[in-house]
């Protein structure tokens, strides 16, 4: 059974004809060609697929595409604006918060949701928030530093 699914992706209206069993991450990657959102597991553990759905971070591998009908979806590709990196992206680069880069889009999307709810998270809060995002390269230390610095830069920008 195929269904037409339409939603807003990074501010643009998009739609695709998909199987009802198509996962949201599959539609984003395969149908819409935005491959920055990754798949690292099949049990909702790793967080490589984290996107924003109506402003909240969710795991796009544990949602059907049809469940996103009419929603506002944001992925890593929409984070930088007009060619300018977002402060959180800058912070990941500046603090070496990534190595292989595979978990990075999910980490950034998750961190942005954290900062939205808690503009000045301390280290413990960052570590606890990131429990749904696995990284096998960095040992998290520089990711935590990056999120702290990114949050600070975002506060300064406000």
């Amino acid at each position: 059974m195929t269904t037409k699914v339409s939603f807003t992706l990074n501010g643009e209206a998009v739609s695709a004809e998909v199987d009802s069993r198509t996962l949201l991450v599959e539609m984003i990657r395969e149908n819409l060609g935005k491959t920055g959102t990754h798949v690292g597991c099949d049990t909702s553990q790793c967080g490589a697929c984290v996107i924003h759905l109506d402003g909240r971070s969710v795991k796009s591998c544990t949602m059907l595409a049809v469940q996103a009908e009419g929603a506002d979806v944001a992925t890593i590709e929409g984070v930088a604006t007009n060619g300018k990196l977002h402060p959180m992206q800058e912070a990941f680069r500046e603090h070496h918060g990534l190595q292989c880069g595979y978990c990075t889009p999910g980490m950034i999307m998750s961190s942005l949701d954290l900062v939205k709810q808690n503009p000045d998270p301390d280290e413990k809060q960052i570590r606890e928030w990131l429990e749904g995002n696995l990284c096998r390269c960095t040992g998290y230390q520089n990711i935590v530093r990056a999120v702290k610095a990114g949050a600070q830069a975002m506060r300064a920008d406000d």
Partner: peptide, 10 residues
């Protein structure tokens, strides 16, 4: 290499 990874362009 970071620019492509933090923008989803890896």
């Amino acid at each position: 290499e970071d620019h492509r990874f933090i923008t989803g362009k890896g």
